[in-house]
Design a protein around this nucleic acid. Structure first.
Lengths: 253, 253
DNA sequence: GATCATAGTCGTCTTCCTGACGATAATCAG
DNA sequence: CTGATTATCGTCAGGAAGACGACTATGATC
């Protein structure tokens, strides 16, 4: 096929990952500390170059596995152990976003259950889960937790904010919140996911009525657990339903 | 800034446009006929290469204006005449999607009011509005309208389908349907937009109650019109509200 | 000019869903 | 045994939506 390679500009293409999980009642994102310029020592989202013969989704899945050990699952394969939800988020291509060269980044959003510990690629201190509120808080100059005292590198604060907003809105009308839970979970655990992602308190009784009354959302496994304390709670798996109609309503204030 | 240009692969980056409008009770998309290989003679979405110093949104706005004369308006400037809603849709980067080379396409979605006629770049026959159902119908071999008898070039059928689905879902919970209307419009005209985009019939009385009862959605201009026949209808402009809560419900079947 | 078709607008009624919240059940820590 | 904690069921009032009747104001037709 004839074409003229000089007839159009060349770009580097990367994938960046917004990997979210819920830890200790807080929505957290995976952050890596940069070792090299630009922005050495600053925290950034994990990511990397797309390879010459690699699809965008494949590149995102590869980066996710390299950083966390998590496998991405396609919508068709819903219940692998250690599998995370992965979807494309948006693409960022401001000409000035990387001082080195023209880079277009295709950001992806991954939602994962709480993991024992982030698997560092090599240096255990170079990757961590950080509460998104800390990462996005611009006014961190006087925080005593120096680990997150500078804003994210590049335009990653913007990307993270977009990913968080996507997650917040998407759990309203889809069953995506179950992606934050282990394979078997209780209604209370699912409720705490909503509470952490939205930053609100939900009425346990109304929440229970809503999720157990939506056909196909939850299927009971028969087991119970007391891992949250209190009365034993029924265990559920995510049902086949992917859309939630009518949606879960996010409280106003 | 030191870097090694051979350390990562180079890509061509394009923007492709899904430009939607409502004409004669049908949801239509802008299609251009390709003159050169690959896929000569086939219909495709408008689009083109991103320039070396151009932001993605700017490239999409430039292509939109080149093809239609429409200006894109940012969310801050809601009511320019001849302005269309423009937003990023998704990015497509399958290594095989263009047989010539590795091309990553950042697709954008534009919603426009019905236009008098598509402004061709040069050849008036090379650009047209086509009903999306015709463009997406794979089984067009025996249609007598030969103009749309072949599937769209590249992966543009997939992109168009994604754009249509985005529009269909987004008018549920936002005031985006007004982007398909002229600056002043009636409740009935707005209802016909929903009916065309969703392909359903809506009850005029319930629709009227819903849209006029949602604060900030519509503001009356004081005028009336009989351009639809029948009793004169009040004219409205789009109000400041961008989200629709509770949403407009799309009928089940 | 009377009649009719068309489109717009206002109400009513029933049903469903939600938010608020009382009450009961089953565990663990002392 | 008592209290704290969490889970689960039930009740009630208010709001929103679907179904649909009724009326209004125009242009078209006879």
């Amino acid at each position: 096929m004839p074409y003229d390679p000089s007839a159009f500009p060349h770009f580097a293409v990367t994938v960046d990952l917004v990997v979210l999980t819920v830890r200790r009642h807080a929505l957290c994102a995976l952050a890596v500390r940069r070792g090299e310029p630009p922005y050495p020592g600053r925290w950034a989202l994990p990511g990397g170059f797309v390879r010459a013969d690699e699809d965008l989704a494949a590149a995102a899945a590869r980066e996710l596995e390299e950083e966390t050990g998590l496998r991405a699952h396609a919508p068709s394969q819903p219940a692998l152990p250690n599998a995370a939800h992965l979807e494309q988020l948006a693409t960022y291509g401001d000409p000035q976003r990387d001082p080195r060269m023209r880079v277009v980044s295709v950001a992806h959003l991954a939602l994962a259950p709480d993991l024992p510990a982030p698997r560092a690629g090599g240096d255990a201190h170079s990757v961590r889960w950080a509460p998104v509120d800390d990462l996005l808080d611009q006014d961190t100059a006087f925080r005593h937790d120096a680990e997150v005292s500078a804003p994210l590198a590049f335009d990653h604060a913007r990307i993270l904010a977009d990913g968080v907003e996507r997650a917040r809105s998407k759990i309203e009308y889809s069953s995506l919140a179950t992606a934050f839970c282990p394979q078997e979970f209780t209604v209370g655990e699912l409720r705490r996911v909503y509470e952490a992602v939205w930053g609100v308190a939900l009425d346990p009784r109304n929440f229970h009525r809503k999720v157990t009354g939506t056909p196909g959302f939850l299927v009971p496994t028969g087991g119970t657990t007391t891992r949250q304390g209190g009365r034993p709670a029924q265990l559920f798996r995510a049902g086949g339903a992917t859309v939630l109609n009518p949606p879960m309503l996010r409280p106003e204030v």
